[in-house]
Design a protein around this nucleic acid. Structure first.
Lengths: 124, 124
DNA sequence: GTGTCTGCAAACCATTTGCATCGGT
DNA sequence: ACCGATGCAAATGGTTTGCAGACAC
C-alpha cells in the first residue's frame, strides 16, 4: 500500500476531526489541500483504510456511511432530527452483552454495535 | 389511510415472514398476488406503515433497508459474510443501557439499537 | 521501469418523485 | 364525486468502476 499525498491528507483530516464525516464531507476538506482530488479516490481510500484497520467505517443508520478516525471501539448517539452523530467516549464497552447474546443464537458472535438515538441539544 | 389491496398484501406478506426482507424482496413476493404492483408503491407503503407503527424499518447496517413485521423491540444478529439477519427474541431489552448513556451525553435519548455481528452456521 | 494509484466520466443500485389515471370511501 | 393511492417512468443521490495517464517505489 503506497503512501500517496491523497492518503496522507485523508487520514490526517479524518484523525484530527472529532466528528464522523461522510465521504463527501472528507472530499470537501481534502479539496482545500488537493484541489484536483476526486470523489472516487476518496471512496477507494476510505474503504481501503477501513479494511486495513487504520480508520473505522461506522455501521450507523442514515443514508450515508460515516467514517471515524478513532479506531478503539466506542458507542454513538445519533440525532433523529439533524443526524448529528456524537461519541459516547465514557460509556464502557459492555462485553457482557455478547456473552448474553451467545446463549440465544447459533451464530458465532464477533462484535456488536450499539447506537443510541434521540435529540441533540439544538433540535430538542 | 385507505385500505387498498396493495397494502393488505404487503402487510400480510411481511407479517407472515420471520425474516427481515428488503423492499425488493417484498416486491417480488407481492407480485405473485398482484402482478401489476409497482416498486414505488412498495416503497411508499412500507415507509407509511413504518411511520404508523404497523411495521418496523430496521436501522441495520448493509446497503438496503430491511423491514420487520414484528413490532415489539428486539435485537438482531447479522452475518458478516452473507448478510443474513436473525432475531434474538429471547435476549431481553436492556433498559439499563439508556440510563447509563444519559449520564454521558447532553442528547435526549429516546431509544437504542443493538446489533450483533458474526458468522451464521452456514458461513462459519 | 513497473505496477499501483489517480482523475474523470460513465455506470450502478437503492430509493424517491411527478404525473395521469384508478379506485376506496 | 372526491381525493388519496397506484403504475409507470424518469430523476435522484450515494457509491462503484473502467480506463488512460501519472507517480511511488
Amino acid at each position: 500500500m503506497r503512501v500517496t499525498r491523497q492518503r496522507q491528507v485523508l487520514l490526517d483530516e479524518l484523525c484530527k476531526l472529532h466528528t464522523h464525516p461522510t465521504a463527501d464531507e472528507l472530499y470537501q476538506l481534502a479539496r482545500k489541500k488537493l484541489p484536483r482530488i476526486s470523489l472516487g479516490t476518496v471512496y477507494r481510500n476510505l474503504e481501503l483504510m477501513a479494511e486495513q484497520g487504520l480508520i473505522r467505517k461506522l455501521e450507523a443508520g442514515g443514508t450515508q456511511k460515516r467514517f471515524d478516525g478513532k479506531v478503539v471501539h466506542h458507542y454513538h448517539v445519533r440525532c433523529l432530527n439533524c443526524d448529528r452523530l456524537d461519541d459516547l467516549p465514557n460509556l464502557p464497552i459492555d462485553t457482557e452483552l455478547e456473552c448474553q447474546a451467545k446463549q440465544h443464537t447459533d451464530f458465532t458472535i464477533l462484535r456488536h454495535n450499539l447506537e443510541f438515538t434521540g435529540l441533540c441539544p439544538a433540535c430538542r
